[in-house]
């Protein structure tokens, strides 16, 4: 790892100011992606601004159907929140299957969403729940947030402070993990929202990061059943193709996992 300077922020404002004062500073939350990346010298930020000690960014609050998850809330905290499970068990189950127990004790929802790894789980939930990404500057709709692999609408000095969404009428997340890395080769978050609209958000499979499948959404809006999407087409040209699975395999996987997600949310 190259040398870096560590700073611990105690407020969002302080974090942003610390970031701006570094040459090439980066925010670090749980660090479960950033620290390994720095160890491999694939990233070498001059400064690290630690977000884990900002109280305003922690915790889960539920007001009726409105859910707010602070960006520095760990996967373990999301997975084990009984209150959250009461309104949206799908996101708890998703968090419970990220990485392994030690990673879940450190990794945070804000870090995962900001990184937008094409095989990360949380981006599917954010898009699938039609969530809002609250930042130090503004609130961004999920539909406008993800800009392809590892790319988001976030500006350099902008930090995610919370993820908010309305509890869905029903939802489920099912993933097919790579047998070795356990990252999603395909993960589908299927939800019927309170306004009756349907979201099918897919991670791990697409060649440009998380995406929605509108044909499946329309089919499910008319008939929420696995059979309704059995004949939906998935464009192989939009799929990842690598040693773990070619694009034809992944296109089929999207349909299979989507059906399982619909079944799980029935």
């Amino acid at each position: 790892m190259y040398a870096t300077n560590y700073h611990r922020a105690s407020s969002v404002e302080e974090a942003v100011n610390l970031l701006k004062s570094g040459d090439d500073a980066k925010f670090v939350s749980g660090g479960q992606t950033l620290i390994p990346t720095m160890k491999q010298r694939l990233a070498a930020p001059s400064d690290l601004v630690d977000l884990r000690h900002i109280d305003a960014m922690k915790g889960i609050s539920i007001d009726g159907v409105q859910v707010t998850i602070g960006a520095a809330t760990t996967h373990a905290e999301v997975a084990s929140s009984a209150e959250l499970a009461g309104v949206c068990a799908a996101i708890c189950s998703l968090a419970a299957h990220i990485g392994d127990p030690a990673v879940r004790h450190m990794g945070t929802i804000g870090g995962s969403v900001a990184n937008n790894d094409p095989a990360a789980d949380y981006p599917a939930a954010v898009l699938g729940l039609d969530a809002q990404v609250r930042t130090s500057k503004r609130t961004i709709d999920a539909a406008d947030f993800f800009n392809g692999m590892f790319d988001t609408a976030l500006e350099e000095d902008e930090v995610i402070t919370a993820i908010t969404f309305q509890a869905p009428e029903k939802a489920a997340y099912v993933k097919y993990p790579n047998p070795a890395s356990r990252y999603a080769m395909c993960g589908v978050f299927a939800a019927r929202l309170k306004d009756g609209s349907v979201r099918v958000a897919i991670t791990g499979a697409g060649n440009d990061g998380v995406f929605r499948h509108t044909e499946m959404e329309e089919a499910l809006a008319a008939d929420w059943s696995p059979a309704a999407i059995a004949s939906c087409s998935v464009d192989e040209g939009d799929m990842l193709s690598d040693i773990h699975g070619d694009s034809a395999y992944r296109a089929n996987l999207v349909r299979v996992i989507a059906k399982r997600a619909v079944e799980a949310a029935a």
């Binding site: 560590y6 630690d50 450190m106």
Partner: peptide, 12 residues
């Protein structure tokens, strides 16, 4: 809490 000490800085 169990964590991986190779994936965390001492200062953290």
């Amino acid at each position: 809490k169990a964590v991986k000490s190779c994936t965390q800085l001492a200062v953290q």
